[in-house]
Computed example of a mutant assay.
Amino acid sequence: MSKFNMKNTSRRSFLAGSAAMIAAPAIAQSTSTVNSQATTENERDLSEVVRRNISSFRTLDWRPYFDSTRNGAILVDIDSRAVHYWSEDQSIYKLYPSSVPLTQELTRRGRTQVVRKVEGPSWRPTPSMLKRNPEWPPYIGPGPDNPLGTHALYLSWTYYRIHGTHDTRKIGRRSSNGCIGLYNEHIAELFAQAKVGTQVLLI
């Protein structure tokens, strides 16, 4: 076989394999209504590469938002779908893409704080979630089907959390019932840095 044909064959195999990998999560997750595509804003075909406005996903200074970084500070920018973190001594700054609430009615803004940290969280839908989605299970334990991913930071507002997600399609989209979602590797990193008492501002 010529080098040209080998390259074409390899490229076709790679593209076919990639298409299968993209399709597989959607098929697997259709069995769980909680993690289904219906709970995610469908801006366009989920297999399409989304080009976002990079200027909206930018580094920020903490000073316009907090009086100090005592206990650390987390800023959730719902409009740009980003989470910012500053350590108490300001030596650490992190910027993460996030998922945000599906609608303005589900969105809450203002000041709160981390009141609890849970690795391997379990999940129970709120009464309002069950009213909107009566087919949802009343409880999901830790694991790959859990909507809270691998780690969760519980906020002082009832039912509100910053947490991970196993469904990576949700990141960068309006896809939650009020919480803020991060990739599992990002929430694990933030979980290690943040502590109970870390101040949180959602804007």
Rank of each mutant, 00 (worst) to 15 (best):
R124E: 15
P142Q: 08
R108E: 13
D89N: 15
P97T: 06
P134S: 08
W123F: 14
V83T: 13
V100A: 06
Y96N: 01
E119F: 03
S122T: 11
Q113T: 08
W123G: 08
P134K: 13
S128W: 07
L95D: 02
E88F: 05
W136P: 00
W136I: 12
R109G: 03
Q113W: 12
S91Q: 15
S91P: 06
K117M: 11
T103L: 03
E135C: 01
I140T: 13
L130M: 15
W123C: 10
R108C: 01
W86H: 01
R132I: 02
V118P: 01
R124V: 14
E135R: 14
S91V: 05
P121Y: 04
K94V: 05
R109A: 07
T126A: 10
S122A: 15
P121D: 00
S122C: 02
P97A: 07
Q104W: 09
P138D: 10
I92R: 12
R109Y: 03
S122Y: 13
W136H: 09
P137T: 11
R109C: 09
G120A: 12
P127K: 02
L130F: 02
E135W: 03
P125N: 08
Q90F: 01
P138E: 11
D89G: 08
L130I: 09
N133V: 05
T126F: 05
G110K: 05
G143H: 05
V118D: 02
T103Y: 05
S98Y: 05
P121F: 02
Y139I: 10
T103N: 06
L106S: 06
P137D: 14
E105R: 13
P138C: 00
E88V: 06
L130A: 07
S128K: 06
S98R: 00
G110R: 02
V100W: 00
Q90K: 13
L106P: 00
R109V: 15
R109D: 12
P142E: 13
L95C: 05
Y96A: 00
P121C: 03
D89Y: 03
G141R: 09
Q90Y: 01
L130W: 03
D89M: 09
Q113I: 00
Q113A: 07
T107Q: 10
S99G: 15
M129E: 13
G120I: 04
R111A: 10
V100H: 01
M129W: 01
P97F: 05
Y93A: 10
P138L: 06
R109M: 10
P127R: 12
V114D: 00
P142C: 00
K131P: 03
R116W: 04
L130N: 07
K94A: 12
E119M: 04
T103E: 05
